[in-house]
Design a protein around this nucleic acid. Sequence first.
DNA 1: TTGATTGTTACCGG
DNA 2: TCCGGTAACAATCA
Length: 264
Amino acid sequence: MPEGHTIHRFARDQTKLIAQQKLHITSPQGRFADEAKLIDRRKLNRIEAAGKHLFYHFAGGRILHVHLGLFGKFRVHENPPPPPRGAVRVRMTGKEKTIDLNGPNTCEVIDRAEYQDILDRLGPDPLRKDADPDRAWKRIHASKQPIGLLLMDQSIIAGIGNIYRSEILHLLRIHPRTPGNEITKPQFNKLWKLAKELLTLGVKHNRIITIDLKTLKKSIETTPRRKLFRIFKKPNCPSCGGEIERFKMASRKVFACPACQPSS
DNA sequence: TTGATTGTTACCGG
DNA sequence: TCCGGTAACAATCA
């Protein structure tokens, strides 16, 4: 579900959808109800995405912070909405649509200081206008850690997840085990540009797309998810046909072609 | 029923 | 201190 583009997509869509929205808080486990009282539900000023984090800014400096984690999901219903399915943490009801949130990693009301703490520990997000890629470059250039690990570190670069890491490194022909300090500046510049392009495409279509769309016969909507990737969970390399290797890095499976992405 | 999974954090041992 | 490994948590589907 997540990866940074998803949350930017929600921020964008919800901002349109939520005009004059009211929030109705449902909390089957009783975990969120007290916190929810802290926000003025009628005064939602703006919705902001940073990396994989989503912030709803309410009047009075109260901020609803959502992180979808692995399983978090927004469901959009036409009004009148069906009964909540499963543990709905937040239900936002507008004039025409209702949005339910299930299974988030984080769903809490925070103040401006806590919000700032979260922003401060995030690296630059390629989807944001205020992103400073040089911050990411400095961290990567100074690190002996493998680039496959660094790309998963949200304090270095925010928004990339497990699928994009394998796909981006394959497109750049960089092996995930390459130490950060062996990445050249031109390579990093390409990496940043590619991340920005792919994430932007992801926001547009609400899918992770790393193949060349010109080769696609069917529409994106009717194409199975996995056919929009190049090597993630694939047995063979789309470039050379060779066998894809898979191993764990940052406790997650990473995919690479030993031939096209030679280890240094 | 089991296992896997677009994620993060805390904790522990080397 | 730094690193890697592990567990916990969330929900759904094959």
